[in-house]
Design a protein around this nucleic acid. Structure first.
Lengths: 317, 317
DNA sequence: TTGAAAGCGCTAACAA
DNA sequence: TTGTTAGCGCTTTCAA
């Protein structure tokens, strides 16, 4: 591997001058520059990024942390990585799995193995996570208010309430909700929307359940629906994948969807389009984009503008 | 940030001794070890990985390269990352997009920003890619025979041929194939299977088309199917996602699936399970696993065993 | 406009 | 068992 030192030896020019042309900082006469450039080509020089990292104390690596894999994660990390690479950042993907491991990954901030971190789904408390913000910026799309964590969250309340009204007008008087863990800020927003809705519409029936994790949730909820003689006419799921699993389970048991049960997802992921069920676009793509922009702005004292985030109902065609 | 130097100053013990207890290499008396450990705790010491990287000339980073995003990529990178993290490796995700950018990413091998590289989907020729193998091991799941690139590919020929026979016995005499780009080794294997099958079964009709990329392919192929008066009774797609899109498009146009057209995917991804269509399990999970194992073995002169890879037909239930 | 020298934080050969 | 020293490859003062 060619180093800057080899170049110096070969050309008889000092390391510092070479460094100047490589990095593009500082003055170098055009004769010397040419000699150096030629030598770089000839010797196939590629600057050692690791050495740069040690000096500059940053790596242009951003960690993308999720507790576990579920289908939306692919789309999430895709959106995030696309924009990151446009700005010259690498994305390191971590499935944290356990709370110790999440801490371990967060620790990579301390030595700038990671310049910054995006939390897609967390394990530890936000306070614990936030305590790492002194080592590098932290962003999330989750609903949090924390002094040291940036969140470009979407408030699910208004869109959720609006959908309930919409369904009510269409004559759906019994609605079921598959909700995520209660500690989740937007789960609470949804519960508030449901409760307020019931107050205004006492003739309407709303039933809801909370679930941890995502694997098998749709199937489990569907089994409950099947067993329940008095099941809802509409089911709303907290993510498309759960809706998809719900639908699949119902269909396997001979239930006609949406005729016998309308199922509505959240996220507007690929799967909703493919399986053709209605969903709520909660703008995760823009959220990923903006999450990165925040991180970038922090890291580079820049002021790149954010994209707007407008959740909307996406009906099946 | 606490460094080994701070620790030395604080305890009055030399940097090297400290390094020994931090890294766990070499002898240190238990008294000194205790003093150091205490100081480490007290000062909240975390070793600087970047400095280690510069010394050791490796980073425990493995690059996962794909040309672009499509739904299976999430599952691919998930399988790969899971096993990688078990062995202490980080995974850097790159959507290469252009050939220059793929080269640029491959260049990260030269300075060990990346220790090794896994190619999920490539852009440049295998020869070009293989020329980087001198800087670090390269693996892929694609079908290649190249002296410097490890490939744990599955031969699609036998399973594909077997499925054609199976379908034939079931009375399907007209089968359509949606195939990937022709330069792909397994596309060619599939074509061979089809051609040989026709020879043995002259009463059978097989029609096939090649497609570049993946976005919109399923929809496009479905439109052709719809326009074709004499359309196949079965369609085989080169990946589940394309099958899913094909099915979705057919259904939107009022075609009953599988009654009017049986659609068969490839990969056995999540979407096949959810949409409940038959598919071929080509063991990508094991392929990702084994791809990593190869890289690990190369990097660490180890000899970890591979998992077996047995493709099989997965019928819808 | 250029070069010498110091240093980023860590490890390892060598000497003690 | 421990410390001294050199050095990984690069950048950046500082002085010339």
């Amino acid at each position: 591997m060619t180093t800057i030192y080899d170049l110096a030896k070969k050309t008889g020019i000092s390391k510092s001058t070479i460094s100047r042309v490589v990095s593009g900082n500082g003055y170098v006469s055009s004769q010397k520059r040419k000699i150096i450039l030629d030598a770089m080509h000839e010797m196939n020089y590629i600057p050692n990024q690791v050495a740069k990292n040690l000096r500059s104390k940053h790596t242009k690596n951003i960690g993308f942390l999720v507790n576990d894999y579920y289908p939306l994660v692919g789309e999430l990390v895709n959106s995030f990585t696309q924009i990151a690479s446009q700005y010259g950042y690498n994305v390191n993907l971590y499935f944290t799995k356990t709370s110790e491991n999440e801490i371990h990954t967060l620790n990579l901030l301390t030595t700038k193995t990671l310049d910054a971190v995006f939390i897609a789904l967390r394990i530890n408390s936000w306070d614990t996570i936030g305590s790492y913000a002194k080592f590098g910026p932290i962003a999330t799309w989750q609903r949090v208010k924390h002094p040291h964590i940036y969140s470009n969250f979407i408030d699910h309340y208004p869109i959720y309430y609006r959908i309930l009204e919409h369904l009510d007008k269409q004559g759906y008087k019994h609605i079921g909700h598959v909700l995520s863990e209660y500690r989740n800020g937007n789960t609470q927003a949804r519960v508030r929307a449901i409760k307020n809705f019931i107050q205004k519409h006492p003739d309407s029936k709303q039933s809801y359940q909370f679930y941890h994790g995502q694997n098998g949730v749709g199937e489990f909820a569907a089994m409950r629906w099947l067993q329940d003689k008095n099941h809802p006419q509409v089911m709303m799921a907290f993510t498309d994948y759960v809706a998809a699993e719900f639908i699949a389970t119902l269909k396997k048991n001979g239930v006609k969807v949406p005729e016998e049960c309308l199922v509505i997802g959240s996220d507007n992921g690929e799967i909703a389009r493919l399986m053709d069920f209605p969903t709520i676009d909660l703008c995760f793509r823009n959220q990923m984009h903006n999450g990165f922009i925040y991180l970038y702005n922090q890291l580079n004292s820049a002021d790149l503008p954010f994209e707007s985030q407008n959740p909307r109902w996406v009906d099946a065609d």
